[in-house]
Amino acid sequence: MKQFLLLLKKEQLENIRNYKIYWIPAIFILLGIVEPTTNYFLPQILESSGSLPEGAVFEMPTPTPEQMLAAIMEQFQTIGIAVLILAYMGTIAGERKSGTATLLYVRPLSFKAYFLSKWTTASVISLVSVWLGFLAGYYYTFLFFGEVALIKVLQLIGIYSVWVLFIMALVLVASAIAPNSGFAAAIAFGTYLIIQLIDGLFGLNWTLSPVKIPQYGVEWLTGSPNSSVWGAIGIAILLTLLLFALGSWTAKRNKAKTKV
């Protein structure tokens, strides 16, 4: 615990001094705002671009506010997660590659504390970014498309947060395994895409699959909660805990790979 707090402070300082604490939230806020805004102005943009034949009447169904929030989440699922992977791919692999980890590894270091301090910091920044992004997006959706009950939005944010925590554990495990940052990003991206692909292809009846968490969030937004949502969340938490164990163990096992 003592080492966890010590290392947590180090990670916090790092994230402040490399500005991640500022630019990651900024990107999520932007993603949240841009989606409803472009949707709102899309008909006007198309009209003014003159690509429509003379006299054609442009009819496009106006999205509901719920659809807009789902679209924002889609942005987070693609660009948002990509940004998080790129931002944290080097967390462990980079320290080993550069040799900065060596001076920590020669000490009686708890690799559990080491891994968890990194996951906690990355997760806090990612979660705050996602929340701010959703709230900003929610405000814009309200402005352009109408109201959604705040409680519904908070539900979506809450459920999606579990998914983000799981993904961050995945990113850090990738960083513990890989010999360098690029490799870590490849492992994280690869796994992220493959689990979605597998779930999409074969997982029609896998109602407890954590991959369905974002989708459940959207379903709850528009109607009633899927009965499997809590089960899926439980499994996601369980998997996250397993990833902690895997990450600490791999980080320790790979300590010999640090540059001396």
Binding site: Y19, Y22, W23, A26, I27, I29, L30, I33, V34, T37, A136, Y140, L143, F144
Partner: peptide
């Protein structure tokens, strides 16, 4: 005015990121 108010933050954030970088 509301529309402009809505668009201003997008430019501000982008500008801030750019200047920051």
């Amino acid at each position: 005015t509301t529309m402009i108010m809505a668009l201003v933050p997008i430019f501000l954030i982008q500008l801030a990121l750019m200047i920051f970088a």
